[in-house]
Design a protein around this nucleic acid. Structure first.
Lengths: 197, 197
DNA sequence: CGATTAATGGCACTCTCTGCCACTAAATGA
DNA sequence: TCATTTAGTGGCAGAGAGTGCCATTAATCG
């Protein structure tokens, strides 16, 4: 089975899992139930996802990877804020409407479901490393330099706050405007960072 | 049983658990084993800790709370960096040597043990809220203002990087100097933040 | 078409964690 | 002082999470 097929299968299961999580809560949703909903055996389900909570990964990864991709393409002669305005359009033109809604639903779920929050934070930390990589390449500093790691961690934290916020404000429907506002929110937050002192 | 007694009992079990985690890994350490080492029944153990990984909380909380406490006492007329130099002495004069070592050991463990890392990140997020509270009080802004949340998230992220770093560099023994260096590292990192743009 | 390989499903099993109940000990109150 | 309430404890049974093993099936290749 090709890697892409496998990812597709994971994504499919992921959607069913998230729907069930939202309807009944994580604890009340068994692996058997998810497997049945997705049309695979329970044994196979546990092969696709080592833990129940990791069902949210395929959807969340979509969002996080999109941001990392943008940062990787950040040209040296541009302010990050300006670059974001031009290049940060994930969830806007990248994915289907249903996926946008699903991703935001997951983020919302992480607010009330501890297990999902933990998975979410782990994923964000993976993104933090990707961010550090991009920043290292851009600045020429080593990837494990304190400055690089701090900047990556801070940016990642900003993105987290902004994402939580947008998920909260879109609990009743998403519009293109809201997503543009999301981008501006990140830009604002990055500006706010420099006022930390 | 008083609250303090209960916390003491949790801390005691925590120490045994961390030792076992370090010796054999988390997965290979059963709840029964921890309970036995701590001298309580398995049933009681599960009452003290809802999940196996939360055994690390009592120790980690010591460290995180110490920092929050310092931030809460941050006077309005002082740069954060200067305040840290004066007031941030957790692990230096606050706790016993053994506890310092235990706390750093836990942080080290979170690098290789996914389950512990997740618990650690959740804990850090709780600290982030405490930080936001302190910052809100200091600035007079509402606690859920984007600026406040961003600053809290960024500071928390910085602290995380610095803590990971100090845990790594102290894998072979801790000295007072190393801990002072830790404080300077946080200060440096906070400075680095303002160069983000 | 036969043979190798990889994915699947079923089964049994361990471990995590919970609900329930019975027991003990301390605190309370008459 | 004794009966009663109260709270922590431990034992036991059971549901669910996750794994190892093996038989089956489907895809791939010579």
């Amino acid at each position: 089975m090709s890697d892409e097929q496998r990812q597709q299968q994971r994504l499919d299961i992921s959607r069913h899992a998230v729907r069930l999580f939202a309807e009944q809560g994580v604890a009340a949703t068994s692996g058997e139930q998810i497997a049945q909903a997705a049309g695979v055996s329970e044994r196979s389900f546990w092969r696709y996802f080592p833990h129940k909570e990791s069902c949210v990964e395929p959807l969340l990864t979509k969002m996080v990877d999109a941001f990392c991709q943008v940062v990787r393409g950040w040209p040296g002669d541009l302010e990050l804020i300006d670059h974001l305005r031009r290049a940060y359009t994930p969830l806007i033109d990248g994915a289907s409407d249903e996926d946008i809604e699903a991703v935001l639903e997951v983020v919302r779920l992480t607010q009330s479901e501890r297990a999902l929050r933990a998975a979410y934070l782990m994923l964000r930390e993976r993104a933090e490393h990707a961010l550090a990589e991009a920043l290292a390449e851009r600045t020429g500093l080593p990837e494990d330099a304190i400055e690089i790691r701090v900047q990556a961690a801070a940016m990642s934290a900003v993105l987290k706050v902004a994402t939580d916020d947008i998920a909260r404000t879109t609990s009743k429907g998403v519009t293109r405007d809201t997503l543009v506002q999301h981008r501006e929110e990140i830009a604002d937050a990055l500006r706010a960072l420099s006022r930390l002192r």
